[in-house]
Amino acid sequence: MSAPSRTLATDILEATGINPATCYQCGKCSAGCPMASESDLRPHNVMRLVVQDRREAALSEQSIWLCLTCETCSARCPNACDPARVIDAVREMSIEAEVADMPRNVAAFHRAFLEQIRTNGRLHEMGMVMEYKLRSGDLMKDVINAPGMLSRGKLSFRAERIEGVAEIKRIFEKCGVTP
């Protein structure tokens, strides 16, 4: 007998323990998805692409980056398909395959966020915003109402840096992630 060939579905099964074939395309996930109106692919469409082994289409789809991980879909799926987790896994594969079509600002946000953690161990909002602006190219937009934040003592210019920064760097390395 020949070894079963690798498909997107078997990869997902391996990565998440979820068998995408259990999805019967009922659409309950997409019925409650808060981002459905803004995405071209809704959670049940992603499940469908996975089952059909349309790897390219799934991995390079921009919509997967619009999922908020709110878990509404997964909480209500009648078959425990956990679309939120599947989308997470597809995103990971998409980054790995270097075909991710993240909207520029979403990508910028995640990178800026992770970079902050890697260098300080904690998030420094001001630093992150600077970094985000550079990465997204959205230099002018005041994304978080910085003056308001400052006046309310919610932002500080100084970053908190933890003592175990080396440990954080080690974690990033061991997980093979470079922001």
Binding site: R91, H110, F113, L114, I117, G121, L123, E163, G164, V177
Partner: peptide, 18 residues
């Protein structure tokens, strides 16, 4: 003492292990 960021959604969106 010396707690660090949980990674929030950026962590698991990028890499499950992270």
């Amino acid at each position: 003492a010396d707690w660090s960021c949980c990674g929030a959604s950026s962590g698991h969106t990028t890499d499950h292990l992270l």
